[in-house]
Simulated assay, not measured.
Amino acid sequence: MHYIYLHGFASSPNSAKARDINSRFAQIHTPLKIPDLNLGDFSHLTITRQLKQVAAEFPLNAAEVTLIGSSLGGLTAAHLGQQYLQVQRLVLLAPAFGFLSHWLPNLGDEKLQRWQQEKYLEVYHYGEKRSLPLHYEFVTDAHQYQERQLQRPIPTLILHGKEDEVIPIQASRDFACLRPWVELVELDSDHALGSVTSEIWQAIRLFCQLP
């Protein structure tokens, strides 16, 4: 089994969550790939680009893959699981289901219209610790990736904070209740899940049958 971790939107392989999970995999001597989904060009990020990039990381010998994805990385992982039979297990940390419907209204109509017209919007990038321009193609591309497409019965563990201020936990509840192959664990935390790292690791270890 190969393990790949997908970080979230405007984040990086150096995020607190990525580093924590990476160190725990290292302690049990199990390799974990953490690709940089920014590709040195956050401004032209799209979900389609992430899907192609991560699929290129899959082993060529058709060995099975477990994807662990955080937020937008979780949404990306779910769509990879739908598209590639090589993906045999998913762990989704506060997955960004319906994220456009949660994120875009917060921008406001005026800012959204300006983004459409000017093509770029300044977005704070937590990995770079500065604002970077993001092309509007990110939005138009994202519209094609809807949760209703995700119907492959792949064993899935979702870990979501009950106090999530970015993606409401109801999004994961709605997703799980229609899919009996999905296990949802609700945690006393927010979107970052920084206060429950031990619980997350224990759940991943049990679900993935790690040593």
Results as ranks from 00 to 15, higher is better:
residue 93 L to C: 13
residue 104 L to I: 15
residue 42 F to C: 10
residue 26 A to P: 01
residue 139 V to D: 05
residue 175 F to K: 05
residue 58 F to G: 14
residue 29 H to R: 09
residue 108 G to D: 13
residue 67 L to K: 03
residue 26 A to R: 01
residue 110 E to W: 00
residue 43 S to L: 00
residue 4 I to N: 00
residue 134 L to V: 10
residue 198 S to L: 12
residue 191 H to Y: 03
residue 33 K to M: 14
residue 143 H to Q: 08
residue 2 H to E: 15
residue 142 A to V: 00
residue 130 R to C: 08
residue 17 K to Y: 03
residue 24 R to N: 14
residue 199 E to Y: 08
residue 152 R to P: 13
residue 4 I to F: 03
residue 121 L to V: 03
residue 209 Q to F: 04
residue 200 I to H: 02
residue 53 Q to W: 13
residue 195 S to Y: 12
residue 190 D to A: 07
residue 2 H to I: 05
residue 204 I to V: 07
residue 68 I to L: 15
residue 44 H to S: 11
residue 186 E to R: 07
residue 116 Q to L: 11
residue 1 M to C: 07
residue 22 N to W: 06
residue 179 R to L: 04
residue 48 T to I: 04
residue 23 S to Y: 01
residue 153 P to N: 02
residue 55 A to D: 01
residue 3 Y to R: 01
residue 11 S to Q: 11
residue 77 A to I: 00
residue 186 E to I: 05
residue 100 L to H: 00
residue 163 E to N: 12
residue 111 K to W: 00
residue 135 H to C: 12
residue 25 F to M: 15
residue 5 Y to I: 08
residue 21 I to K: 00
residue 124 Y to Q: 08
residue 83 Q to F: 10
residue 103 W to M: 12
residue 60 L to T: 15
residue 104 L to P: 08
residue 125 H to R: 03
residue 147 E to G: 04
residue 206 L to H: 15
residue 197 T to C: 13
residue 175 F to A: 11
residue 63 A to W: 12
residue 42 F to R: 10
residue 55 A to T: 13
residue 5 Y to N: 01
residue 117 Q to G: 03
residue 187 L to V: 09
residue 47 I to S: 08
residue 83 Q to R: 14
residue 30 T to E: 11
residue 157 L to W: 12
residue 114 R to Y: 04
residue 154 I to D: 12
residue 188 D to R: 04
residue 122 E to M: 14
residue 104 L to D: 09
residue 158 I to E: 08
residue 150 L to K: 04
residue 7 H to W: 02
residue 207 F to Q: 07
residue 103 W to D: 05
residue 30 T to N: 03
residue 107 L to Q: 09
residue 117 Q to K: 13
residue 98 G to F: 05
residue 120 Y to V: 11
residue 198 S to K: 13
residue 116 Q to H: 15
residue 146 Q to P: 02
residue 39 L to R: 14
residue 116 Q to A: 10
residue 119 K to F: 06
residue 96 A to K: 05
residue 91 V to G: 05
residue 36 D to I: 14
residue 190 D to Q: 01
residue 186 E to H: 14
residue 79 H to C: 09
residue 150 L to E: 09
residue 4 I to T: 00
residue 149 Q to R: 12
residue 29 H to S: 14
residue 135 H to R: 10
residue 22 N to V: 12
residue 188 D to Y: 01
residue 135 H to A: 11
residue 14 N to R: 14
residue 196 V to H: 10
residue 201 W to H: 06
residue 48 T to V: 09
residue 135 H to K: 12
residue 24 R to D: 11
residue 95 P to D: 00
residue 7 H to S: 08
residue 203 A to H: 15
residue 95 P to F: 04
residue 17 K to L: 07
residue 71 S to N: 06
residue 167 I to K: 00
residue 85 L to V: 09
residue 88 Q to W: 03
residue 162 K to A: 15
residue 104 L to M: 10
residue 148 R to C: 02
residue 182 V to R: 08
residue 21 I to F: 12
residue 157 L to S: 12
residue 14 N to A: 14
residue 82 Q to T: 09
residue 187 L to K: 11
residue 17 K to E: 01
residue 193 L to S: 04
residue 180 P to W: 00
residue 127 G to Q: 08
residue 118 E to P: 08
residue 166 V to N: 03
residue 161 G to S: 04
residue 98 G to R: 06
residue 140 T to W: 00
residue 2 H to V: 04
residue 3 Y to C: 10
residue 6 L to H: 01
residue 38 N to S: 07
residue 204 I to T: 15
residue 134 L to W: 03
residue 121 L to R: 06
residue 105 P to M: 07
residue 204 I to A: 01
residue 28 I to E: 13
